[in-house]
Design a protein around this nucleic acid. Structure first.
Lengths: 225, 225
DNA sequence: TCAAAAGTGTTCAGGGTACACCCATGG
DNA sequence: CCATGGGTGTACCCTGAACACTTTTGA
């Protein structure tokens, strides 16, 4: 009885593609794969997969991310759906792009090798197959907007971070220079960011105070840096 | 040779649903249909359709809108993709929601009747079938954001409009009261909005000056009211 | 003559931006 | 002792918000 309403309609392949951002020693990276399968074998690509009959599109994205990184429960956001007829030379595939932000040090490097995945610098993104460059562009625009209204940075940073690290991240993502004093003042006014008693001695002789995000205050609706 | 890469993958129905906003005598409306077909026969619904093998998802949305309204080339925006497994009791359907803004007076009322479609006040949106209320919520949030950064209002208004009409539209969409003097000052500072020599005598004894959007200036990246 | 909508400037506060120097430490 | 990154306050400007009365005209 079910499965009879839409019999005359076409069915299409539905894919997900993941734009995965990570931060490594202060520089922002994107996780890309060199395809060792057709179509577009040998070209750069986002990591993707197909949505199965019995999983939601969101879950398909989570599954693809987990396969690649071993990580569960990562923050992911739908970016946009790409549905041109000939976007994929393999067949007609409608693809939903998702964006993930994660802390690079948590991730499983074996899985990365298995999929032939590597971190590529955010400022040196190569030409990718199909419409994947366009997907990345959409994702970046979306992140830029969210950075201004939500606490996102903590998803990329280690648990404890210096204000300089935080500022560098904002500068990279927003592609702008920020005045140090103004940035620090605003960061400290922001109740999500709390000071710890730890000092980072790795990046300077003097040492820099480490801060954390205050998990219970992350829910705050308005966020400003 | 083509069509062999993805053979083992599932194929799904892909739908589009249209959230259609229109303005009628100063009040904002949504175009909904009372379904005279299964599933959810008799319930309120967005107008939708299925994406065909040989059309892009964007074009499917345009086709659905054109069928219903007779209008071509209407401003439409992808809102979000809804992909829960059981969102549609008829079958597994992944649906891409689109938002359209149009001027109600241009549209073909015969087609509306054919589909059992009616304009429903923006402030009295009924319970709709499936996840359609959620789609509308997403669409409204997106419009609210775009209102502040793009000239959108002119897509809903007639070609010539009074500043009071414009202000009412902003107040409805943003769900806020705006100070008249501040609003008018900002509107007139905005180079997209130009004064005409026409006077509207329908809505007041005194008459109100009619304005137009300046089409060549609509491309401006930043927009503020 | 009055009801109803159109139209019109000024003041004030707060947020954002610009700007330069001292501090602590390891090598 | 010096090179390196960490850390700190103030002044100004501009934008956004608040606020009330006069004008026009049809009924």
């Amino acid at each position: 009885m079910i499965n009879t309403f839409y019999n005359q309609q076409d069915q299409l392949f539905v894919g997900v593609d993941c734009i995965i951002f990570g931060l490594c020693e202060g520089s922002l990276k994107l996780l890309l794969i060199k395809r060792d399968f057709e179509p577009h074998k040998g070209e750069w690509s986002l990591m993707g997969g197909f949505v199965r009959q019995n999983e939601s599109v969101d879950n398909a994205a989570r599954r693809v991310l987990k396969n690649l990184t071993g990580l569960d429960g990562i923050y992911m956001n739908q970016v946009n759906t790409f549905g041109d007829v000939n976007r994929d030379p393999g067949d007609r595939v409608v693809s939903v792009a998702y964006c993930a932000l994660l802390n690079m040090h948590e991730i499983d490097n074996c899985a990365l090798q298995k999929y032939n995945a590597t971190w590529v610098d955010y400022n040196e993104i190569p030409r990718l197959c199909m419409d994947h460059n366009l997907m990345i562009e959409h994702a970046i625009n979306k992140i830029r907007h969210r950075m201004r209204t939500e606490p996102l940075a903590f998803r990329l940073l280690p648990q404890r971070f210096t204000l300089t690290q935080l500022q560098n991240l904002y500068e990279t993502l927003l592609d702008t220079k920020i005045d140090k004093r103004n940035f620090r003042r605003r960061a400290l006014e922001n109740s999500c960011i709390v000071s710890t008693n730890y000092i980072d001695k790795e990046n300077s002789r003097r040492g820099a105070r480490l801060y954390e995000y205050h998990s219970e205050r992350l829910e705050l609706l308005s966020f400003k840096i």
